[in-house]
Amino acid sequence: MSGLTGWARAGAYAAVALTAIACGDLVNHDDERPRRSVPVAALYLDDGHPTVLLAPCEHTRVIEVTVVDNSAHKIWTAVDSDPADPATTVRVFAVPPGWTLEKHSAADFTELTPGHDYRLFTSLYSLLESSTRDSAPNFTFTPADLTALKPDQVWTVAGESSPPQATPRTEFQRAASAACGTP
């Protein structure tokens, strides 16, 4: 993509990331297990930095966190490369220990821009055979959504067809556990 400039390069990066995200379902196209939507990610500000709180089901890991700037067509993706030590939070634009920055990530995408619309994606990997095929709903957010949060709130969705909203952190964690079938 080095021959591309400006918007063409950003559009190409967006196409690559969205294709990679969509391919998660394509790989499992023949998987006949019922699909279960599990809200495993929420956003909040940690000392002013956008941070993803992860609450995957037991025997499931979040293996990828992607933020897409819908306005500027930029992508940031961190991939968990350390299966022995799963992360419970991922600070956006700061790769956690044991994770790697995906090569399609835009080098100049290092902060959220006021007035831009974003989308959070998370990819799941099941460590055990399961009767369901779990997927995490993606959701939109803006910097204003995050700055409006109270200290005990996160920005998340209750399920795949639910709109994103501010939710108490304990309610998010309880809902994630309930969606996993655990108390």
Rank of each mutant, 00 (worst) to 15 (best):
L18H: 08
L18C: 06
L18R: 14
T19V: 05
T19N: 11
T19D: 09
A20K: 09
I21W: 07
A22C: 05
A22T: 08
C23Y: 13
G24W: 02
V27H: 12
V27T: 12
V27P: 01
V27L: 15
V27G: 09
N28Y: 08
N28K: 11
N28G: 05
N28H: 13
E32H: 13
E32Y: 09
E32M: 14
E32F: 11
R33Y: 11
R33Q: 12
P34D: 11
R35N: 13
S37C: 13
V38M: 14
V38C: 15
P39C: 11
P39G: 09
P39T: 06
P39I: 04
V40S: 00
V40D: 00
L43T: 04
Y44V: 00
L45D: 01
L45Q: 03
D47M: 10
G48I: 09
P50N: 02
P50D: 01
T51H: 07
L54C: 03
A55G: 08
A55S: 15
P56H: 02
C57Y: 02
E58P: 11
H59M: 12
T60V: 15
T60A: 13
V62R: 00
I63L: 12
V65S: 03
V65Q: 01
V67F: 03
V67G: 02
V68S: 06
V68E: 11
D69E: 07
N70I: 07
S71L: 10
S71W: 10
A72Q: 12
A72K: 11
A72T: 06
H73S: 13
H73W: 14
K74A: 00
I75M: 12
W76D: 01
W76A: 02
T77L: 05
T77Q: 15
A78Q: 02
A78M: 03
V79R: 15
V79T: 14
V79H: 10
D80A: 15
D80L: 10
S81P: 00
S81E: 15
D82T: 15
D82G: 07
D82H: 15
A84E: 15
A84K: 13
A84C: 10
D85I: 08
D85R: 15
P86S: 10
A87G: 04
T88Y: 02
T88R: 05
V92K: 02
V92Q: 01
F93Y: 11
F93D: 03
F93P: 02
F93E: 04
A94Q: 14
A94V: 10
A94I: 08
P97Y: 07
G98K: 07
G98D: 06
